[in-house]
Design a protein around this nucleic acid. Structure first.
Lengths: 164, 164
DNA sequence: CGATATCGGACCAATTTAGTCCTGTAAATA
DNA sequence: TATTTACAGGACTAAATTGGTCCGATATCG
């Protein structure tokens, strides 16, 4: 249905919450889950993924917990989705490899790769800082987003394969 | 997994095939399925949806079949996806209505609506004619797409609710 | 040591998706 | 007008995915 999974959905809500409420610096999974009103085991699972991928820093043991590893400006929606959802790609073949069984006979493969890149780029231009900016949706138009300076492409988390 | 369903995937392949091979004008579902090497009942189902939504014209009875209802330039990827996949929306709340149970407590709802619009707009800027253009992916950059003149927003198929 | 938390899995139930099939109806043709 | 072809509109099933839970291991603090 062209929808993000709950994992990504929740994950972004959690990250936005942490960005918006920077203190206390470190909180445990249970507290965070309670604050965003989402099922605790689910939130815990998501926090683990985010920590593993370096978006969050985790502290084990008593008084442990999670906190943002980078400032909200340095975390893009594209990165969050890629981490939580797996490599972005509207279709199999958009990922580039020989994953599609219709390779060769397919007439639209290369086009999909561009479309995919367009969407991916668009999501890379929106940061966590934007998400928690109350003026974001009111004062920005679609074109404002699209014409932003693009973040450096090569350093992106997206290039890495999904370990999950 | 942030992936289109097979229905949309196949549907776009089928439409691209019809656009690329305009003769014979009308072909039946079985022939089309054979040409694109996809399961016939599936293709038939997809053709029916596309016809119902006015992208294809159908002719019943002997010698019947399907053909494009509009020139490829007048069919956008966004329309195709909306028809085959249902209304676009990365999250529930991006659709606008009070579908999300966290309405009110959610801190990122309005931002999602913008993100959603960005993607939706990007997909509206790519037409079926682009998809079958061999030069499309080679000569166009992301920004070329994003900076295109936008199609008229209000006449879009996307605004209609999904009848399925 | 003992309490607290994350880590990294396995695991299950419910939903969604991919794919099939069947009955009805419209059109062409002999 | 009888027959055949082909779309229309469903219902239906099996497989895959997702949402969600739980557990043993490990790390940290006091």
């Amino acid at each position: 249905m062209f929808r993000l999974s709950k994992v990504s959905d929740y994950g972004i809500v959690v990250l936005a919450h942490l960005a918006r409420n920077p203190v206390p610096a470190s909180r445990n999974a249970r507290e965070i889950a309670h604050e965003v009103q989402l099922p605790a085991p689910m939130v815990s699972k998501i926090l683990k993924s985010l920590a593993r991928q370096g978006v969050l820093e985790s502290q084990r043991g008593a008084q442990g917990g999670y906190q943002l590893a980078r400032p909200p400006e340095a975390i893009t929606v594209g990165q969050m989705i890629t981490i939580l959802e797996g490599p972005m790609g509207l279709t199999e073949c958009a990922l580039g490899a020989d994953l599609c069984t219709h390779e060769g006979s397919c007439e639209v493969q290369s086009s999909w790769q561009l479309i995919n890149r367009v969407i991916s780029d668009a999501l890379q231009r929106v940061t966590l800082a934007d998400l928690i900016d109350p003026a974001f949706d009111e004062h920005l138009s679609t074109d404002d987003i699209l014409n932003r300076v693009r973040p450096t492409r090569s350093s992106s988390v997206d290039e890495r394969p999904e370990p999950n």
